[in-house]
């Protein structure tokens, strides 16, 4: 049931974000309840000597999770590379969730800038977790550049719409069996996470679905169970669907047998 990314082994397949929670205390409680071992963080410009960054960083360190900084807000490869460098220095990790946005309306990743940034960051020794679309060729390119994991969206960030393009996601899983695939954006409910894991995806990253739930802590527990159920179902091998009814009770010689059954 473990998930290996590079030389790190994770027992939880749920990655969580740290934004949008009603309060810092609820953020901490929800992340703990989720059982996640990876939590995403970001950077912002702030007036010198302000203590806000320190306060937040202490909260995150207290969770004892792997920290996955993102490059949110970047639209150019060079900006993303510099944010990654600043993140590496602050958070003391070479992990980077590479986000390079190409469209403000959909927050769709910019494939060309993403590839450019990924190539440079891999050269600089980063472990790149690219936030990407489910486009097969893009994902193959990111794999070939040395990304050890891919993070395709299943729907726009924060939309909570679930797996909109199951065909392409299945294709991705089939054509890239050798890398961990983590659904990064668009998950809204635990059932979406179950579906992703049942399809063979290795994990999900969620933020809004937890933070915007009426009860983030309760939802975190639900997601933990959903991810676990989905993974177990994938490993157990779901039955093939059929077009017509198939009786589950053996019919031959049942009382009053007349060719039907349940």
């Amino acid at each position: 049931m473990d998930l290996k990314i590079g030389d790190v082994t994770l027992t939880s397949r749920l990655f969580v974000g740290s934004a949008l929670y009603p309060s810092p205390a609820i953020m901490q409680e929800a992340i703990r309840a989720s059982g996640a071992q990876v939590v995403t963080v970001s950077l912002k410009r702030q007036a010198p000597a302000s203590q806000g960054g320190q306060f937040f960083w202490d909260l995150i360190k207290d969770l004892d999770c792997h920290v996955l900084p993102n490059t949110a807000g970047c639209r150019l490869a060079n900006d993303a590379v510099n944010v990654a460098e600043m993140s590496r220095e602050i958070f003391e990790t070479s992990w980077i969730k590479l986000e390079v946005i190409g469209d403000d309306y959909t927050l769709q990743p910019h494939p060309f800038e993403l590839v450019k940034a990924a190539e440079e960051l891999v050269k600089r020794g980063f472990t790149v977790f690219p936030y990407c679309t489910e486009d097969l060729i893009l994902c193959q390119k990111l794999r070939d550049l040395g990304c050890p994991v891919l993070m395709p969206w299943c729907a726009p960030i924060g939309s909570g719409q679930g797996l909109l393009n199951v065909f392409s996601l299945k294709t991705l899983r089939t054509r890239i069996p050798e890398l961990p695939l983590i659904i990064d954006a668009g998950i809204g409910k635990p059932s979406h996470a179950v579906e992703a894991l049942e399809l063979g995806f290795d994990g999900v990253l969620i933020n809004s679905a937890l933070a915007l739930a009426h009860d983030p802590v309760g939802m975190a527990r639900a997601f933990a169970q959903g991810v676990d159920a989905g993974r177990r179902a994938f490993l157990a091998g779901p039955m093939e669907p059929k077009n017509m009814a198939q009786p589950s009770t053996p019919l031959l010689e049942t009382p009053f047998w007349a060719g039907g059954g349940s």
Partner: peptide, 24 residues
């Protein structure tokens, strides 16, 4: 950080300081 003491700034330079914050 290792270069703070040696990098000299010039008129018109743009300096950005960043700190940790919440992210998804």
């Amino acid at each position: 950080r290792s270069q703070y003491a040696t990098v000299r700034l010039n008129d018109g330079d743009q300096l950005d300081l960043v700190v940790p914050m919440q992210g998804g």
